[in-house]
Design a protein around this nucleic acid. Structure first.
Lengths: 340, 340
DNA sequence: TTGTAAGCGTTATCAC
DNA sequence: GTGATAACGCTTACAA
């Protein structure tokens, strides 16, 4: 009934041995055409299906990879996961997903769990407060490829796929300057993460290059959500003089800021230009669309998967670490485009 | 180096047998406190980690569940997955995700793959063109719990977690009628899927109940995307008389319709009221927010996971099939709220 | 309290 | 071309 048929069942039925059945099913050349056909036919009749678990135990390859992200339902991450899945599915791999809830503790735990589950690789994005690298070292010591995407950490032996956040921050700011903005504020996120730090540094670089003064008051560090963006904008607009542009390290921050600013009757982009980061779908849906830096998450996921596959091939040989850097693309929309 | 330590390694080191090590690690009462401590300590020193694969093969439980959706990066689905993961993580289960790309062929293939991988359960949402139920029967025959969420199929033995789409469609339409709308159009999706069929039926029921005429011309069947919504609105607005309200079975359809209608200078909600379905995040972000029917995907995912867990407990006993129906919640926003 | 041995479902290495 | 057997790492009767 609920019993699953094994190669032994087939063997017994045909009065041959399990080894032969296995060979026949794997199209081994050293088995006669006749038995091969017979076995295949019988297997089908008996509804036989290979037990990947047994195969995994035997071969040492589970054909599973673990993917760890802060939250699965953030469009950026789910799109990366989609990319990973689409690249790995044809190769017979399954994708196990885990969330850290952006907590270091969960991150460690999850890495451990995945190792126990014998995944063939781990692709992940750091938790904001990620600390230590002992758990990453564990992964590498077990010879399991470790690939960071987006939020990476420099761990010897680990690979990474990111965009050039510095460039993204630079171009966004440069664009604002070209619109005539002189007092550009920045909504930053936790700068212990490279991605956010780099966006910030790119912003600074653009200011410097254009001879604009860096004003500490114009920097607000916030959480990634909508409400935080509103509050930040409130603080900023009370300054004298208030900024005439905002470059937000996240789209949700930009959205919150825009909502607040508009509610005060201040015109966008005429009085304040705004650029976000991530190119979340909603940025283009808005009646007044929001400029944003695209991170090509689908490509990022696919690339990360490809790096994983490459690492596998080098198993045994000298491990080659890859550091892929994708190019961000600034999408200029209504929130920052002045008629000049 | 890359070698993983097994209980045999520990046993050898301590001059005891693997069985004892296993018992010690599992806190079996029939092993002396002394050895227990020694084993645990040594295991830690040797960086031992349990191989879940071996355990899985032995026990017949992989501690993995498979989740199948059309696309992972659709907010509705990724949020369901989040719910599933959060409910199952504490129980030690891992979630394997697969996409069908909304294709029947991939659906069958994927179900098969997951069975081979020996998942302990399958939670899924149908592909639009899903056909046959042989693959679902296979799952049940293997005694693997099968739980549909959202897009379900009535298969004997399978459970389901859905919202009451009929009610959702009914309430959305009723609301439009209460706003004074008389000629209500409906953007439908492929009605071979229950969810869309039910939304449509709910719409019809509301018309009927209020004595409004059902007009075939006001029904447009489309794909789920933005562009399709635009085209549909274009067709509708050319009718004489054009509709004074649109109930769309998807938010993207509603968005496209709104964009088109506004581009023609027609006022929303004054001349045309619009209600969508799914309560996608962007519906509330819009400057003119969009009314929509919430499906509580997080809750749906969690509930599906709980149904799975319940099914496990009943293993062996008579299988109890659950059909959970969640209540939709109409979020009334600016796109359909008139000042009356 | 601990050891022995079988078994989960495969595949690989020998033989014959 | 096919069969026997060991092995992957773990748990669990059954013995001792």
């Amino acid at each position: 009934m609920g019993k699953k048929t094994t190669i032994y069942d087939i063997a017994k039925k045909l009065n041959i041995t399990a080894a032969t059945v296995s060979r026949a099913l794997n199209d081994n050349p050293r088995v006669s055409q006749a038995t091969k056909e017979l076995v295949v036919k019988t297997a089908a009749e008996m509804n036989y299906e290979q037990n990947r678990l047994a195969l995994a135990l035997k071969s040492g390859k589970s054909m599973n990879v673990g993917v760890i992200v802060p939250y699965i339902n953030r469009n950026f991450f789910s799109t990366i996961i989609r990319g990973i899945e689409e690249e790995l599915y044809p190769m017979g791999y399954h994708v196990i997903i885990c969330q850290t809830h952006d907590e270091a503790k969960r991150e460690k735990e999850t890495v451990q769990n995945l190792l126990n589950a014998q995944v063939d690789g781990i692709l992940m994005s750091l938790a904001t407060d990620s600390e230590g690298e002992e758990h990453f070292k564990q992964v590498l010591k077990k010879n399991v490829p470790l690939i960071f995407f987006d939020r990476k950490k420099n761990v010897v032996g680990a690979s990474s796929v990111c965009i050039d956040d510095f460039l993204g921050g630079f171009e966004a700011t440069q664009h604002l300057i070209e619109q005539g903005c002189k007092r550009i504020a920045h909504l930053a996120l936790n700068r212990s993460l490279d991605v956010y730090k780099n966006r910030f540094e790119g912003y600074r670089k653009a200011l410097k290059k254009n001879g604009l003064e860096f004003n500490e008051q114009y920097i607000i560090e916030l959480e990634s959500d909508f409400e935080a963006g509103k509050e930040a904008a409130e603080k900023l607009m009370k300054l004298d003089p208030p900024p005439d542009a905002i470059f937000s390290a996240t789209d949700h921050g930009a959205l919150g800021a825009i909502k607040y600013i508009k509610s005060k009757g201040v015109k966008i982009p005429d009085q304040v230009c705004v650029v976000g980061f991530s190119n979340e779908p909603f940025t283009q849906f808005m009646e007044q669309s929001i400029s944003s830096v695209d991170q090509s998450p689908l490509e990022m996921g696919k690339k990360a998967a490809r790096v994983f596959l490459e690492q596998l091939e080098q198993k045994g040989k000298e491990k080659i670490v890859k550091e892929v850097v994708l190019t961000p693309k600034l999408e200029i929309r209504q929130s920052s485009l002045r008629n000049i």
